[in-house]
Amino acid sequence: MHNIIIWYGELTSVRSLLKRGLLFLSPGIAWLLVFLVLPGLVLVAVSFASRGSYGELIWSFSFENYSRLAGFGMFGWTADYLTIVWRSIVVAFFTSLISVLLSYPLCFFIAARPERTRFLWLTMLIIPFWTNMVIRSYSWFLILAPELPFAQVAARLGIIPEGSPLYPSVLAVYLGMVSLYLPFVALPLYSSIEKLDWSLVEAAQDLYASRSRIFLHAILPQTLPGLSVGIILTFVPAMGMFVVPDLLGGAKYMLIGNLIQQQFSTSRDWPFGAAISMGLMVLTMGSLYFYRKKSRGGTIL
């Protein structure tokens, strides 16, 4: 086969081109194969192994770790692990939803600023995006501390005992999660809102559409590309988050991420940790598939 083609102005054969191309691909692809794909496969293999009494690996093929994740343990069936999985999905869902609801007004506001200050507002959105998540999570310790008004009001209302902080709590987890992921929704959404064709909105107004109909039919479809990127950037990592629930949720509000982290640290149970990671992987792929089906043609980056 001598497929002669002209490629970037060069008269050459497909074969010699691809040979050269392979040279370019090989270092990067080799790295990703060795340190991403291979470890991934090892993780799959380990999820079928079992843990020895000192935390060592025993290579015996079984589905024990998966059935344990599904709740079948030594003492019959419990919903403990499945509750954690379900909770992670719920937390990721509401984190995304609240972030979306807050992002729309924020993005409209920024888009309506005059050109000079718009850049400043946008930078103010980018800074939290890049601020370390450990700092962003623990900073809520201060806001929710017993000395500050929020906790004092809650204590006055009898929600928490006098002199105790508002964390760990479900509220604290949501505050941490939403503040962490909001910029991940708002930034892609802003890029869509910036390009919004306002004549469609005006047309809807001229035809006496109600505010909700204007949003649903003139604004939402136009912002869908940015919105779906934002939701994916939030929902997927939020399911695997462990810093926020660890610092703000306490032991009673664990998510999948905490469960995985526990297996690799204190419990030293790699096979079970690997099985939970596989479970998270399935959830990730499932939500990506769902997103692909719902929003055709959009790309993530």
Binding site: P39, P237, F264, W270, G273, A274, S277, L280
Partner: peptide, 11 residues
């Protein structure tokens, strides 16, 4: 999710 990459690397 980065925690999966982290777990795979640990193993």
């Amino acid at each position: 999710p980065d925690i999966i990459l982290a777990a795979a690397l640990v193993v």
